[in-house]
């Protein structure tokens, strides 16, 4: 426990000092929320909708931080620590190198959650964001999406032979998802063709899940998204465990 606490504090400080996550996981989603708020104000999502466009977008905007921490932060740190042989140094101590990876998952998760709270606070205080009553379902969906995106990230970190490959794979995954899954550019304003393409991306399904739970929509429509998320989490976690290398 002492080792975990000290490592957690240190790795958190390093993550903040590194600035990448502060910019992409914390500042960016807040900025997107403000932009959407300024553009759409409290317009309804569509004519006769009981919730605003902004409230509808909340479930999408919170995934910006999940994607940044899970598909950039986590895999790059894993590849970097392996490359720098920091994991090897842990192998000649009483503590397993697994601990530092676990600490990284927690640090990145914390970044996502801080971002979630900030985005909610900005939306609620400035733009009259109102969520549905079922907090429990929303948080459940949130952690499921987090789990499956992180497992994609871990898989990338595990299979990449070096930091260059890891960088490349992360960029290929991260940027299209950020733009085309509805995390930044709202799914609802995309042309139908783009929506069809967007549906293939795993994050799009995650966002559907988050929107449905945050708006309190009927749960029948999201069964497909739910299954996809669970399958991705399971599949990628298995691959990462099977192919993980310390060096």
């Amino acid at each position: 426990m002492k080792a975990f606490n000290t490592m957690f504090k240190t790795e958190l400080k390093l993550a903040i000092r590194g600035m990448d996550m502060v910019i992409f996981a914390i500042a960016l989603p807040v900025i997107v929320m403000v932009i959407l708020g300024v553009i759409y104000g409290n317009q309804p999502a569509f004519e006769g909708a009981s919730y605003s466009f902004l409230t509808q977008s909340f479930g999408a905007v919170v995934t910006i931080a999940i994607s940044a921490s899970g598909m950039m932060g986590l895999p790059l740190v894993v590849a970097d620590y392996r490359n720098k042989k920091i994991l090897k140094r842990f192998k000649v101590t009483p503590v397993s190198p697994m601990l530092i990876l676990f600490v990284q998952v927690i640090v990145n998760m914390l970044m996502s959650i801080v971002s979630l709270l900030l985005v909610f606070a900005v939306g609620a205080l400035l733009f009259d964001l109102r969520l549905g009553d079922n907090w429990f379902a929303f948080l459940g969906a949130y952690f499921l999406v987090l789990l499956s995106i992180y497992s994609i990230g871990m898989m990338v970190g595990a299979v990449s032979p070096n930091i260059k490959t890891s960088n490349l794979l992360c960029s290929i995954l991260y940027f299209p998802m950020l733009i085309f899954s509805g995390a930044t550019l709202p799914y609802e304003v995309m042309p139908t063709v783009l929506q069809k393409i967007s549906d293939i991306l795993p994050l799009t399904q995650g966002i559907k899940l988050l929107k449905a739970t945050s708006l309190g929509l009927p749960s029948g429509d999201i069964l497909f998204s739910l299954i996809i998320m669970i399958l991705i989490a399971g599949f990628c976690a298995c691959i990462s465990i099977k192919f993980f290398r310390w060096e």
Binding site: K2, A3, T6, D80, K84, K85, I86, R89, P94
Partner: peptide
């Protein structure tokens, strides 16, 4: 153990690295 090449996190300070190392032992 002291390895030939040094392995440490970018931007970590001397005190932080020592602190983490110290926390690994009983």
């Amino acid at each position: 153990v002291q390895f030939q090449e040094s392995h440490y996190q970018e931007k970590i300070t001397v005190a932080e690295l020592c602190n983490v190392t110290q926390s690994l032992y009983k």
